[in-house]
């Protein structure tokens, strides 16, 4: 039996609220917001992934949108081939497309993990600003790669002919899709919590604080960081696969460098190195964007300075503020 703390109580309450959201929204006559909540949850998954490298590992990746893009395109490309019955690879081992989530989503995760692995292999040799910039450079390369991928729509993007199929679930049903995404979000959170709680996580944090010492006591920090970066990329790829299904559309704009910036904003806004913080950050960021852009065409002029204020005065994130407010600061 785990000890019952305000933290676990909070978590239980949060999960209960997430589960009860669709019926509540239905009750107040705003069922449309289930879709909004789904999109937020998807970005939350990506933000949690980024938090793993950014918050715990201290690696400021300015290219995480690329992994979302790779995941989304994997699903999109497989779906296209499944729809028009063409082959992805011809030759000795012909491979066709698929709509099956059980095949397409793991492939999306694998593809983005591979890409993250190779980017990490090179980028992790650098540090500081060089790391920020080299991850950005790689993301730009992938961005232009998809732009020039004419078979799959290039800059115009690629329509998903149908959503993935998963164990007979109706993924077109907003509520079903919402519960699926929430389930994945919670699974990702639990997985990451265990990861950072294990020795692996302590090595990563140790490398952030003092890499030389970690090396001295015998931890090959480079390898640990590479694994961490790869896992993070894989989870971001999963978010991409979900996003492709929700939008039923993928395009290079998913990989635009400002998207990577927005992901960082979500993480910092919510609170780095907290896992739950990025979720709060994603909720706040996307809702704010939505509300402000309905308010005025010039919403960026409010949003920009707001960002600066957050950095200046609340750089431990909203979660930090909340916890300070409740006197429950665990950091």
């Amino acid at each position: 039996m785990p000890k019952i703390t305000p933290g676990t109580l909070g978590a239980v309450a949060a999960v209960a609220l997430l589960l009860a959201l669709p019926p509540i929204l239905d009750l107040v006559g705003a069922p449309f917001y289930v879709d909004v909540a789904t999109r937020i949850a998807i970005f939350a998954i990506a933000a949690v992934a980024l938090d793993l490298v950014l918050g715990y590992g201290g690696m400021v990746s300015f290219g995480h949108a690329a992994f979302i893009g790779v995941g989304a395109y994997t699903v999109g490309i497989l779906s296209t081939h499944a729809s028009n019955g063409t082959l992805l690879f011809d030759g000795a081992l012909p491979i066709g497309g698929t709509h099956s989530a059980l095949i397409a989503w793991p492939l999306a995760v694998l593809a983005s993990a591979l890409v993250a692995f190779f980017i990490g292999l090179v980028s992790l040799r650098t540090r500081g600003v060089y790391f920020i910039m080299i991850t950005l450079a790689f993301a730009q390369m992938i961005y232009f790669f998809f732009v020039s991928l004419e078979t799959y729509g290039g800059d115009d993007g690629l329509s998903l002919w149908e959503r993935s199929s998963l164990l007979g679930l109706d993924l077109y049903d907003s509520t079903v899709f919402y519960y699926l995404v929430i389930f994945i979000l919670i699974a990702v959170l639990v997985f990451c919590r265990r990861l950072v709680g294990a020795r692996f996580g302590r090595v990563i944090v140790g490398a952030r604080e003092n890499e030389r010492r970690m090396n001295a006591i015998g931890f090959p920090t480079y390898r640990y960081k590479l694994v961490c970066f790869t896992i993070s990329g894989a989870i971001a790829g999963l978010a991409g696969a979900l996003l492709a299904n929700q939008t039923e559309f993928v395009s290079p704009s998913l990989l635009h460098w400002t998207r990577s910036g927005e992901l960082i904003v979500m993480v910092v806004l919510g609170g780095m190195g907290t896992l739950l913080g990025p979720v709060v950050g994603a909720i706040f960021f996307l809702l704010l964007e939505d509300v402000l852009s309905e308010l005025t065409q010039h919403w960026m002029i409010i949003f920009g300075p707001l960002l600066i204020l957050v950095v200046l005065f609340a750089n431990r994130g909203l979660l930090g503020l909340l916890r300070r407010g409740t006197g429950n600061d665990t950091r």
Partner: peptide, 23 residues
């Protein structure tokens, strides 16, 4: 501050300047 805070705050400045110019 660390580079991360700087990236974020100056990212905010870009949004601000772009919109200001547009106005």
């Amino acid at each position: 501050r660390d580079h991360l805070d700087q990236v974020l705050a100056t990212f905010g400045l870009i949004l601000f300047f772009n919109e200001l110019t547009r106005i």
